[in-house]
C-alpha cells in the first residue's frame, strides 16, 4: 500500500480514538448532570451530541473512500471495517448519553432517589472503565483483553436489575414519585445499553485482530446467567430468614 494510504489509515484510527475519548467524557457529563439535576449543563450536552454525529459521518465517509479507492484486503480491510462498525457503536453511545441529559431536562421536580443515584454513580464509573479499557485494547490489538472487558457487562446488568428493583419499590411506597421514577428507569436502561455497545466494540477488536465475528455479550450467550447470579446472591442473604429459598421471587422479575 502507498504511504499515503497508511497516513490516511492512521488519521482514521486517531480520529476514532478521539471520538472514543470524547464519548467517554460525554457519558460522565451526562450521568453527573442527571444526578446533580444540572439543567443548563444538560442542554449543553444535548447540543454537543450533534458534534459527535457529524464526526461519525465524516469518519464513515473517509473509511468508505479508502475501501472504494484503495481496495485494501486482509489486515487493512479488517482495520477499516472495524473502525466503520465500531464508530457506529460509539455514535450510538453518544446518543444514549444525550438521551440521559434529555431526561435531566424532563425531570420537573427534584424527587431524587439517592439510593439509585449511588448505583448510577458506580455504574457510570464501571462503564467508563470498560470503554477506556476497550479503546486501549483496540489500540494495542489486544484480543484477550477485549474478551475479558466484555465479561464486565454482567456487572452492569446486575446494577441495572438492582436499580430497577429499587425504583419499583420507591413507586410502591409513594406514587407521587412515578414521573421521576420513569426518568430513572430510562436512564439506568440507557446506561445498561451503553454497556452492550461497549461489548460490541470489544467484538470489533476481536474481528480486527483475528477476522472472527464473535458474540461476547455474557447476557446474550447465556440469558439466564444474570437471573441465576442474582438469585444465588439473594439466597445467600436470605438464607437464615427464609425457610424455603425457592419460594423467593427472582429479583429480576
Amino acid at each position: 500500500m502507498h504511504d499515503e494510504f497508511l497516513d490516511q489509515l492512521k488519521n482514521l484510527q486517531s480520529t476514532f480514538m478521539n471520538m472514543g475519548i470524547n464519548v467517554s467524557e460525554q457519558i460522565y457529563q451526562a450521568s453527573s448532570t442527571f444526578m446533580n439535576h444540572d439543567k443548563s449543563q444538560a442542554k449543553l450536552i444535548v447540543s454537543d451530541d450533534s458534534q459527535v454525529n457529524t464526526e461519525e459521518v465524516d469518519l464513515e465517509k473517509e473509511a468508505l473512500n479508502l475501501i472504494a479507492l484503495q481496495q485494501p484486503v486482509a489486515a487493512y480491510f479488517r482495520q477499516i471495517i472495524c473502525i466503520l462498525k465500531a464508530s457506529s457503536d460509539l455514535e450510538r453511545i453518544g446518543d444514549h448519553a444525550s438521551s440521559i441529559a434529555q431526561e435531566t431536562l424532563r425531570m420537573k421536580k427534584k424527587q431524587k432517589l439517592p439510593d439509585v443515584d449511588a448505583i448510577i454513580s458506580k455504574m457510570t464509573l464501571k462503564i467508563r472503565e470498560m470503554l477506556e479499557a476497550t479503546l486501549d485494547a483496540y489500540l494495542h490489538e489486544n484480543e484477550s483483553a477485549a474478551k475479558l472487558i466484555a465479561q464486565d457487562d454482567l456487572t452492569i446488568d446486575k446494577y441495572f436489575v438492582e436499580c430497577r428493583n429499587l425504583i419499583i419499590a420507591e413507586i410502591e411506597k409513594d406514587t407521587k414519585k412515578i414521573p421521576s421514577a420513569a426518568s430513572y428507569l430510562l436512564v439506568v436502561r440507557l446506561l445498561e445499553r451503553i454497556g452492550d455497545h461497549i461489548v460490541n466494540l470489544d467484538e470489533w477488536v476481536v474481528y480486527n485482530h483475528s477476522g472472527k465475528l464473535v458474540e461476547l455479550n455474557p447476557g446474550k450467550i447465556e440469558p439466564d446467567l444474570i437471573k441465576n447470579e442474582l438469585k444465588t446472591e439473594k439466597e445467600e442473604v436470605d438464607d437464615n430468614a427464609v425457610e424455603n429459598p425457592n419460594s423467593v421471587d427472582s429479583p429480576s422479575k
Partner: peptide, 19 residues
Amino acid sequence: KEIFINPKEKETNDYLNGK
C-alpha cells in the same frame, strides 16, 4: 475468503495490499 480476509502470514497481507 481466508487468504483475503485473514491470511496467516504477514508476507501475504503485504503482497495483497501491494506493499
